[in-house]
């Protein structure tokens, strides 16, 4: 199981990009932190989620 934004999810084995798409996040408007390390945009499709990972996803909306 992977802890994503505080919730245990069955996402181990997925790359981060696939998880984002599956969960309805646009990869261009999120900041993703995995085990306290930021994942750069170009690595979202390279990093594979592992059992026990802890992930924070922050989604930005427009306005400023």
């Amino acid at each position: 199981m992977v802890k994503i934004n505080g919730k245990e999810e069955n996402a181990a084995g997925l790359c981060v990009m696939d998880y984002l798409r599956q969960a309805g996040f646009s990869p261009d408007v999120v900041v993703v932190e995995r085990n306290l390390a930021i994942i750069p945009r170009e690595d979202l499709d390279k990093v594979i989620l592992q059992d026990g990972d802890s992930v924070e996803i922050l989604r930005f909306v427009g306005g400023g």
Binding site: V30, V31, V32, I38, R59, F60, G64
Partner: peptide
């Protein structure tokens, strides 16, 4: 971070944190 567009917000925040 005081941008308007969400992709710019994510870009800057990711770049600075990383």
């Amino acid at each position: 971070e005081a941008f308007d567009r969400p992709d710019q917000k994510a870009m800057l925040t990711t770049a600075l944190l990383a």
